[in-house]
Design a protein around this nucleic acid. Sequence first.
DNA 1: GGGGTTGTTCAAACCGCTTTGAAGAGATGC
DNA 2: GCATCTCTTCAAAGCGGTTTGAACAACCCC
Lengths: 346, 346
Amino acid sequence: MNLKELSKILGLSQTTVSRALNGYPEVNEATRIKVLAAAKAHNYSPNLRAQSLATGRSNAIGHVIPMASSHEMVNPIFGDFISGAGEVYAANNYEMLLSIVQDGGEENVYRGFKTRSTVDGVILHGPKMNDSRIDLLTEIGLPFVVHGRASGISTPYSWLDVNNRSAFARATDFLLDLGHRRIALLNGLEFMDFAHRRRLGYEEALTARHLPIDASLMRSEEMTETFGYTATRDMLTVPNPPTAFLVSSIISALGVRRAIEEAGLVMGRDVSIITHDDSLSYLTNGADVPIFTATRSSVRDAGRALSQMLLSQIQNPTSNPQSTLLEVELTVGQSTGPAPAVKQTA
Amino acid sequence: MNLKELSKILGLSQTTVSRALNGYPEVNEATRIKVLAAAKAHNYSPNLRAQSLATGRSNAIGHVIPMASSHEMVNPIFGDFISGAGEVYAANNYEMLLSIVQDGGEENVYRGFKTRSTVDGVILHGPKMNDSRIDLLTEIGLPFVVHGRASGISTPYSWLDVNNRSAFARATDFLLDLGHRRIALLNGLEFMDFAHRRRLGYEEALTARHLPIDASLMRSEEMTETFGYTATRDMLTVPNPPTAFLVSSIISALGVRRAIEEAGLVMGRDVSIITHDDSLSYLTNGADVPIFTATRSSVRDAGRALSQMLLSQIQNPTSNPQSTLLEVELTVGQSTGPAPAVKQTA
DNA sequence: GGGGTTGTTCAAACCGCTTTGAAGAGATGC
DNA sequence: GCATCTCTTCAAAGCGGTTTGAACAACCCC
């Protein structure tokens, strides 16, 4: 059933039927009712391709997922993010388009989006420091918003980010207040902007108390369980080991706990952990009592908010770039406690 | 730059240019070369919407993700699956379309896909037993393949599945061979087809050795870390507790280990664990030495294979439904050991 | 040299929708 | 009663491609 057939059935022109369906005012209310009824009865809905060809809009948003061919890791927060964004798209009659692309192939994908007018806008994931994609998108004129930020980019753009710096400063402060002095940082890859900022927050809190920054206490890797485990296991064997771990992901935190318990130590007593928690639906931080003390921020909510931001930017192309900085929630769980008393050297 | 402009520049008709670009034989090789060069020089690529309107194909595949509004869980394997599928789409010039949809709204989405000709086919995720979506898709005539299977459906359809029954039978056998007699099953939701089959495998192995099936040793829930933890904690407190756990997901297995260690027991000595492992990129089962003894099958590979299956089905609409049954790999890790000697009752 | 091939190109129709510009029918004003 | 407005509807022209059917030229064979 297409528009031509439907209008023939109704004995009306395509013009009138189209206008009736799209809510234009210049159509008699009686005929509009008839049209809507007939459309429903014959289960008509417009062909998306034809519609977007005619209007120039595509009613689709692109998400480009870079995947480094070397470390074949899919960002584990991605599922939750798009489920938040997907809700918004569904409510606004937009489609979500996903492109998995090898690192480096992104430029072509974005240019293709524009020239082939596949999507009306894109959400940029996983911004790195000085991320070149931002200037690229500005240049080719494809509306976009960024999940995160990119230090070192001067052109204005829209973004939504967690305040990673303050979050990790607060977390570090929290540990310092408990008396910890040797605090390890298990960070994500530090060319990623969020990881960079987290490190800044950590260093800032230490410096504020005139404590040294010890490179041997810092690791930066992809945030897997294994990373948490091996880094912790190694650090616990050296003389004067850390008494607390600040971890960038709950997944790695699970590995940290594993190493701690394997070493015969007790989490929250012998060694403390604070982790960042993205409120992933499949990896909640305990049930009623949180397992880990954590800085929490829902990535699903971020998906909702950011997609909304993009849609309103598309509707209103002349508006200025917007930005949102989310503060984390610090929830205290069972993984932190006062620093153990220092063993006196004989 | 569109086709009209490009052909004007070349002094050729749109027909010839279009044919040259699409590799039709009735075009002079010399002109084809000229056309291709000009297309590249002017950075021309066809408008996707116009193209699919003209051809009737949309070059897009739909993935419909049901999200129960009650338990707001995004399937954690989803990210890896689509990253596998995405590779295949990229190589074949297909787009991937994602629809997040509230449970129950799926029928409308599928019908919309068909009537609005949004996609050329869909991949069906998370089949339940007697899944009604399969008959629906057959009825509306939208090409589809299923990730998994649906017991109780008689109409033929294409699918790719892990042999869940044999996997869990083997795993149970493995534990039985180690002397375990009280083996707990922490399963996914058993209206999901895969979980149902896993249970069958478990029961089959027990029955084959004339062992009783004890309902108090079986739990069926969403496969979170918390589920693994609470179920294990509870089961370990009863008299005559299980000595081994068969777990449906590595995420839950992490919770099981947490409960075991919290109870002061040692995994692999006091209590054994076997888990199913989907080879998730962000949750690998240890590095060189696997943490858990596991039945493993890569969900990313499944994504690759299944999307390939769908594309070939679309190209060849009259072909018969295909199916693939993948056998798991049983990898022995540190989480299993002989059953502890039975304490003699006095 | 006329009929039949083959190779190459083109104008025009078409895909299914939106939107412009025009036009018919009443209603209104003077 | 005629010009002028609204209200409502319509035919036709896009949007940017693909595909059909025809045309033209060159070549071949008797």
